[in-house]
């Protein structure tokens, strides 16, 4: 027996990044555009997915990977009832999705029968930002009752997103949410971030979001790299 030291010098997150790249390749080869949806609990991730499926199911085939920290499958069932193919990931108390979980979930999905895949991350404004999944885009959902200071308090989440949804705009008259203050915070972190202000409940502002999702689903995945 010989003992020897091997020099490694590798970021601890590299192992995750490798799997994320494999996930991306699997999605690309099946022609699936994948969107990582991140938000705090209760911001409306599932509601937005549900509304989008209901609106677009005649045009595009939508899949959904739901995640929660428990076996509660109700969100995946909501997506199924709306007309998507869905799978539920129980992270068993883990605070974010990682690439390995997505690899397992996409193995359960008929990828060739899906144009657009929503990945609903764990409701959390901290940890999901650090973990690549292999999805093409990250969309952050803020909601007006959370308050207008969230970009200032959770900068990493805002700086890493490719699009932002401000949900529950129908509640603006009832909550303290200064849209200008919020937007200034977002602009400082992520200049020109594509933003959709809408309400899943009232339906206000949903059309531009639907159009964008339909546009994404029609793209060649390689254009989104």
């Amino acid at each position: 027996m010989t003992v020897k030291t091997i020099h490694v010098a590798q970021n601890a997150l590299n192992a995750n990044r490798e799997i994320a790249l494999q996930n991306r390749a699997a999605l690309d080869s099946a022609g699936v555009v994948a969107v990582n949806l991140m938000a705090s609990p209760g911001a409306g991730k599932t509601s937005l997915i549900e509304r989008t499926i209901e609106e677009l199911k005649g045009q595009i085939r939508i899949g959904m990977i739901n995640s929660d920290t428990s076996p509660a499958v109700m969100d995946a069932e909501r997506a199924e009832r709306a007309g998507a193919v869905a799978v539920h990931l129980n992270t068993a108390d883990r605070c974010h999705l990682d690439a390995g979980m997505i690899r397992d979930a996409i193995a359960c999905l008929p990828l060739r029968e899906i144009d657009l895949l929503f990945v609903e991350n764990i409701g959390n404004l901290v940890c999901p930002a650090a973990w690549q999944l292999g999805t093409h885009l990250s969309v952050l959902i803020a909601s007006t009752p959370e308050g207008d200071d969230k970009p200032y308090k959770y900068p990493r989440m805002y700086s890493g997103a490719e699009a932002l949804v401000i949900n529950k705009i129908d509640l603006l008259p009832y909550v303290t949410f200064n849209v200008d203050y919020f937007r200034r915070g977002v602009e400082a972190l992520n200049q020109g971030l594509r933003t959709f202000a809408l309400s899943c409940r009232s339906g206000a502002g949903l059309i531009p979001w639907f159009d964008w999702i339909a546009f994404l689903a029609a793209r060649e995945t390689t254009v989104l790299q």
């Binding site: 027996m1 010989t2 003992v3 020897k4 030291t5 091997i6 020099h7 490694v8 010098a9 590798q10 970021n11 601890a12 997150l13 900068p155």
Partner: peptide
Amino acid sequence: VKPVDAPECYVESIEVETGAG
């Protein structure tokens, strides 16, 4: 102030036992 986004945790080296002499 904010932490600079550099790798904050990495595997520097490992010590292993090999069967060969």
